[in-house]
Every structure is written in C-alpha cells, then in structure tokens.
Design a protein around this nucleic acid. Structure first.
Lengths: 203, 203
DNA sequence: TCCGTTAACTTAACAGTGTTAACCAGCAAG
DNA sequence: CTTGCTGGTTAACACTGTTAAGTTAACGGA
C-alpha cells in the first residue's frame, strides 16, 4: 500500500500496467489482465495497491511528470516570450495527441469513473499551468503582452489546448479541417489574443 | 430495431434511460437497471435496440436536438453579430454544464467505450458549428470581424468552449478561479480575437 | 376448428469486471 | 516450539453487456 514503487512487484505491476495502458488503452486495462501478464493472481495486486484507482493514480503521476518535462524543455528552449509560449503550446498538444492514454487518465476520464486524484498531488499538475503563466508574465514584462491576470490567461489557454486535444483525439473534428491547421491556428490565435498590439504579429 | 421511438416500449425504454442518465450519470446506466425500472427483463430491451450503444445513440440524438434548439434560440435572439456570438457561446457553455450527462455522451465519451456515432448523423451535429460560422460571416459582412476562414474559426471557438466545459465539469480548474470568470473571459477572448480592431471592444 | 407462424417476452448462461474473505506456506522472533 | 507476520493463493460476490434457447399468446389460412 506504500506510495512509491520501489520494491519488487510494485514496480513490475506498474510497468505492465503502463504497457497495457499504452498498447490497449484504458478501456482494456483490467486487474486480471495485468495479473495474467506477470504470472500472478489478480488479488495479489491488492497487496500493493489498495484498488484500481490507486494504481491508475500512480500512472497519472508518471504522466504528470512526463508532461512537465516536455513543457519545461519547451520553456527553457527559448528566451523570447512569444516563441516560448508557442513552443509550450505545441509541446502540450503534442503530448496530448502523442501519449493519448496518459492524457486520457490525466485529463479526460470522468471523476465518476475514477476516484478523485488526491488534492495534494494537484500542486504538481498545477506547476504546468504556472509555467505558462510565468511565460505570459515574461511577455508582459518585455512589453509585448498586456493581460492583467496571467493565471487566468493560462487557464484560458489551457482550456483552448485541452479542447483541441480532446476533439482531435476523439476524431470529432470535421476531416476537411486538417489537424495541423487547427493546431497552428489555435496557437496563433492564443498568442495574438495576448498581444498588446495584434497588428505587429511577429510570432 | 427500428430507429424512431414511436410505439410502446421503445418510448418507455428511452424515457427511463434518459431519466437514469440524468439522475445517476452514464457510469450508472445499465441495461438491467433500465429493465428493472420498467418491470421488464433486461433482454427485452434488445428487441427494440440492437445493443446499448444504439440506445445511447438515440439519447445522443435527443441531446443534439436540444443543443441545436438552444443555439438556434441564441442565434435568432439578436441581430448584432457580436451579441449573437456572445449569446451562442454562452448557450453552448450553459448546455454543457447544465445538461452534463447529455454533454458527456455527446462529446466526452471516448470512441473506445462506445461505437462510433453514425456518420450520417454527424451532419446534424455539424449544423451547430455552421450556425457559429454563419454568425462569424455575418460579422465579417458587417465589417466588424475579419477572419478569412469562418469555419476554421468556428472550430477554434468550439475547441475553446469544449475545453472550458469539460475542465469545469470535471472540476479540474483551480477553485481560486471562479467558473463565471473563466466563462466570460473565454467568450470575451474569443470575440476579441475575431475583431478587426480589438481596441473598440463594444461587446 | 386446428395448424403454423410470428411477435413479445422470459430464464439461463457466458465471459468479463472490481473487490473481499478466507486460507495457506514460509520464515523470523520470542 | 509456537506465535505472528509477509506474500501469496482460491473461491466467491455482485455486477456488467450480450446471446441462445424456451415459453406464451395472438393471428391468419385451410
């Protein structure tokens, strides 16, 4: 029942769970399948994780770290605030579409299907938003942007990015609109809406 | 197996299914529960709906119509393009947050959990986007807006609205940001980004 | 009137699911 | 030597969607 997967089975369970999650998706992720794959009985998983949700939470931890790394790389990859923002937006969408299964358990799955992700861990997830907010603040200091509330803007941007990711990922967008078009348009549109004077768009 | 629920059980099944969907959510919607509630055996539902997905698709039909009505009301509620857009954005978000269960099966549920919504029915759902696109076109003709591709912009707006709805609905937004603030900011931000000259914001 | 067909519905069952209770082997400590 | 803990097991419960087979009643034609 301990949280960090250090010893023996705990690691093996988590690894095969992730493997199954990536290869077959969350809908196919079952305790018995994990157990079969590692040659144990299903119930022995409960000796290491209280229930399925706890296991999935551990996978969410991994996903949050992964996304954080990508965003951080994009953040430090450029000094210019606008490029920084663009890089981070792209990193987010790329993560959302590239690691769909992670993204699903992190941000799509209804709280009804899965126990609330523990509140204290949200701080880690919130760091990602704070990185975006700080990039916006940088732009404001540099005189390029002018939003009064960077954190609110970061949440707005998040909503836009999340919408793009989920609609594309679930193939609900009309095929006549290419994914790339929508993605780049949303990034441009986000940055333009933050700009002080939208006419000198030098993205 | 006929599509339109006209006679007898078909109507009753659909009605109690909707009732259960609204009162307990999709996760709790099961064939046996529906059957129990109407005093039939679970298998008799299969005489009227091929499987659970077909039943849910019928519920989606209702949801699409409902949303369409709301959007249409907002569309004809005002002549001024900007007010029109604002009203439609608000109507969408209000629907998404007010009729959560409908919204979930319509736009959130992963295609992995539910069979693809029949392609021919998508046209109906697409009309909603076309209404937004037409409102944008109206604004362009009126000289207020200047997007080159209204349909792309409509999809961008959709993504933003969808993001706001799903993040708020799943309670993933930091409580320190009030829902209303985020909602109004996203509508404003959407409209501003479409404006020809963002300084004369007369929303 | 009797036979055959069909429609509407049922029960039993299958193959899954998460989860719990009870049990059992091995091993270290008192 | 016994006690108790660790790590695992099997059996079972209460669910899920779905299918196969069986029942019952009504109706049409000879």
């Amino acid at each position: 029942m301990s949280r960090d997967p250090h010893s023996g089975l705990q690691r093996v369970i988590l690894d095969t769970a992730r493997q199954l999650l990536v290869s077959e998706g969350y809908a196919q992720l079952s305790m018995r399948k994990i157990a079969n794959k590692i040659g144990y009985s299903a119930t022995s998983i409960y000796l290491h994780y209280g229930n399925k949700d706890e296991l999935v939470h551990a996978l969410i931890d991994e996903g949050v770290d992964l996304l954080h790394d990508e965003l951080h790389a994009a953040h430090v990859g450029s000094e210019k605030p606008l490029e920084q923002l663009h890089a981070m937006f792209m990193a987010y969408i790329q993560f959302g579409l590239g690691r769909r299964e992670y993204y699903e358990i992190m941000y799509v799955l209804h709280p009804e299907y899965i126990t609330r992700y523990p509140a204290e861990k949200y701080r880690k997830a919130r760091r990602n938003l704070e990185m975006i907010a700080s990039a916006i603040s940088n732009g404001v200091k540099g005189g390029l942007l002018e939003p009064n509330d960077p954190m609110l803007c970061a949440n707005l941007a998040w909503a836009q990015l999340h919408g793009v990711v989920t609609l594309l990922s679930s193939e609900r967008v009309d095929k006549r609109i290419p994914a790339d078009t929508l993605i780049h348009a949303s990034s441009d549109h986000l940055i333009r809406s933050l700009l002080k004077n939208p006419t000198l768009a030098e993205v």
